[in-house]
Structure formats: C-alpha cells, structure tokens
Design a protein around this nucleic acid. Structure first.
Lengths: 163, 163
DNA sequence: TTTCTGAGTTTGACATTTGGACTCTGCTCT
DNA sequence: AGAGCAGAGTCCAAATGTCAAACTCAGAAA
C-alpha cells in the first residue's frame, strides 16, 4: 500500500467532501442499515421477516427503510404469492445491488478474521460454476455483477483459501 | 445474482451468528469507525489530525480508538519526527489493513453513484503502474493487497470506467 | 360486519452522542 | 529547575437516538 511508513501523514489526501467513501458512508451510516441491506441482498424483503432475522425494533426498522428508499437503494414493491392478498416487499434497486461487492468483501473479511477462514456462503461464477471472490483486479478484468451467484456453503473443512 | 425473483425469500440463508458480514459489522459498527479507518488507510494516524479531518468530537474519537485497538484493527505506535519529542500515532495492523478492499469498494460505489463517476483517488498496481479496481474475480486471480498503490487522481474528465 | 394480520406509528423510559470546558503528562525553552 | 505549551485525553449537561410495548390502520376473510 502507499504509505504506512514511519512518520504519519498529517492530512487526508482526499477531503471528506470529495471522497466517495465518505459520501457512501453517509448513505449507509450504521449497523442496522448494513444488516438490512444484507437481508435484501439475500432476497429477504418483507418488513416482518427482516425484523425477525436481525432483531431490530420495528420503529427503527421503519425509519431505516424510509431512509434506504429515499436514498434510492431499494424500493417497495407489491407482489402476490399464490392468489393470496397483495403484499409488499423491499427490493434492492440497481444502485443498491451494486453495494454487493462491499457487503461481500466485508463478509470475506469477517470469515477470515473472525471465523478463522470458515465461510458460510459460497460465491460462484453463474456461467462456469467456478468459485469467485472479491479482490483487486486490473481494470476490465472483473466479472460483471450479474454473473455472481451465491449459495450457503456445504460444510467442508475450513481449508485456507488459496489466494 | 441469486434471487431477486418475484416472491421474496422468508428467511436469510445464513443466520446472523454465522455470517461473516454480520460479525464484521460488529467490529466496524458506525460511521465514525469507518471514517477513522479511512483516515488510517490514508496514513493519517495522529489523534488531532484525525479529529481535524473528519470533525469528530474528541471524546468520541477517544472511545472509538479504544474500540479499534481492542478489536485489533490498529495499534498505537510511538514515533519521532526529526529529533523532536516522542509522538504517538495509530497505525493499522494487518487485520485492519485488510479492510482496504471494503473501504475501496465503498469508495468506488460512492464515486459511481454519488459523484457521477468522478473519482478522487486512483488505484494502481504498484509494479506495472496499471490501474486497478475492486471487483469480482476468479479465485486466484486477485492481486495481493501489497501491490496496491493509490494516489489522488489528477483531475481528468470523468469518463465512465470501461468495466 | 366483525375479525385477523401484516405493516407500520406512537409513546415514554432509557442510553448514547455532542461540543465545550477542564485535566494530565511530558517535552522544550530559558 | 521552573514555566510554558501542545497532544491526548476526561467530564459534564443538553440534544439526539434507541428500545419494547401498546396502539392504529387497511385490506382480506369469514
């Protein structure tokens, strides 16, 4: 990486107002928002389901969903399962779906550093079926998001990832 | 991606307690912690400098730094610049440095969706000098973190990234 | 019409965050 | 040695956010 040398830098090379990361953090400012987006990434979109999965108080969930929709990360969609009544679910927009690499990078990090290399979710290239990960690539060398597929990992011995 | 079909999933395929992402979020639970780690990634490590850059109240910074150190993401190091007095700076540990892909993915997202494609930081492969990004790669196809170098982008017209 | 259920909103006690003032420590200057 | 000073906190009251439980509301079912 660039620096990490002896004497520390005095000032961030990119001021907050121009830093994509700082601006992004404003749209996903807290734990709950991350967890909600994680649920949506998995396809869990109904109010009560999200609430049950992550244990968030209803009032807080309500507020966060409003924010998430306002920021254009998800939208509320009506759907109907088996001629029953109309229901609503929150689904990620394109903008929201493109946060997937961030969440998955976070997951990789957690799997490595907190779960000692045991990952619960397996990422694959939808076409070839080959395993993939989030990493540093030459420009043009990344797979498009739409080829990404994930499924719960079959419990294997947690061999260290060969990369 | 996997689902995003008509009727939503009822339950997350990975419970919180086994999800690397959920566990990771616990170590970086809020806005301030992310911003502090961003500063450290840039090499800004002194208390007062971090405070000035991101505008965090001292008492909060103090608390967050304690947490960050407890979680093993950074450690406090003494250093001396030019025969002056001993000073202290917080520097990322290996564990902390490996959050770089997450922060950079977040930055890419922010650059694309909030700054309309104009990125302030340029990532390159330290050896070849070629531009790189964070993305989905086949296992074994990613560049190691230590080859990553970054520098403020020279202001160009914000051409959309060709990937 | 009444009941039920999912999806919120309101309420009020409790906890955290803020920003400013204050403290402590260890150089450095004289 | 003593005074001065900057870095790195700590402390405090007010503003803000969080929680769980109770309440509301709309549409489908009975």
């Amino acid at each position: 990486m660039s620096n990490s040398e002896n004497s520390p830098v005095r000032e961030s090379p990119i001021p907050m107002s121009e830093c994509g990361a700082a601006l992004a953090i404003e749209q996903v400012p807290d734990r709950w928002t991350w967890l909600i987006l994680r649920e949506m990434l998995y396809g869990v979109g109904r109010f009560a389901d999200i609430q049950a999965d992550i244990g968030i108080p209803k009032s807080v969930l309500s507020g966060r969903l409003t924010q998430i929709v306002e920021n254009g990360l998800a939208k509320k969609k009506a759907y109907r399962d088996g001629s029953s009544r109309t229901r609503h679910a929150y689904v990620l927009t394109q903008k929201g779906r493109e946060l997937a690499p961030v969440i998955l990078a976070l997951m990789q990090w957690g799997d490595k550093h907190i779960k000692n290399g045991e990952s619960a979710l397996e990422l694959t290239d939808k076409r070839s079926g080959n395993p993939v990960k989030i990493g540093i690539v030459h420009k043009g060398g990344a797979l498009p998001l739409r080829w990404l597929s994930f499924a719960p990992a079959h419990k294997k011995d947690p061999a260290k990832s060969p990369d």
